[in-house]
Computed example of a mutant assay.
Amino acid sequence: MEPGARRRPPRLTPEQREEKAKRDHERLLHRMDEVEAASEDTWYAPPYPAYYDTATARDHHRALPVVATTLPLLRRFGADAPMWHRFGRNGWHRWS
């Protein structure tokens, strides 16, 4: 091998590729959670003031709705599937 040449890593078996893809996707989901936590000041909508006793809605004035997904989910399900995570909400949502 020539000096400075890169060695290629050994080829992965199909099982190893699948496991790697799973780990990579979990890492992407974790990163999405980190971005959500770090950007909360931008998208968080506080509840209306206490003088609205019966209001359960939130004041979205000056709040920015943010949705995120991963490329593997987008490739697998398409953009109209419930594979969007809206920051501040639980679960996966359809965004169409």
Results as ranks from 00 to 15, higher is better:
Arg27Ala: 15
Trp95Glu: 00
Pro9Leu: 15
Thr70Leu: 00
Pro65Ile: 02
Gly91Ile: 01
Glu40Lys: 01
Arg11Ala: 04
His60Trp: 12
Pro82Val: 11
Val35Ala: 00
Glu18Asn: 08
Glu18Gln: 01
Pro72Asn: 10
Trp95Asp: 08
Leu74Lys: 01
Glu36Val: 07
Tyr44Cys: 01
Pro14His: 09
Arg17Leu: 14
Arg94Met: 08
Leu12Ala: 07
Asp53Cys: 10
Glu19Thr: 09
Trp92Ala: 04
Asp33Glu: 12
Gly88Met: 03
Glu2Leu: 03
Arg6Cys: 07
Arg58Glu: 10
Met83Phe: 06
Trp84Gln: 01
Tyr44Thr: 02
Asp53Phe: 13
Ala37Ile: 09
Arg17Pro: 12
His93Glu: 03
Glu36Cys: 10
Met1Asn: 06
Arg23Asp: 14
Gly88Arg: 04
Tyr51Ala: 13
His30Pro: 10
Leu71Ala: 08
Ala45Val: 00
Met1His: 06
Arg23Trp: 15
Arg6Gln: 00
Arg17Glu: 02
Arg86Trp: 04
Arg89Thr: 12
Pro10Ser: 04
His85Glu: 13
Arg86Thr: 09
Arg31Trp: 00
Pro9Phe: 15
Asn90His: 10
Met1Lys: 00
Pro72Arg: 11
Ala5Ser: 06
Pro49Glu: 00
Met32Cys: 11
Leu74Glu: 03
Arg8Ser: 14
Ala79Leu: 06
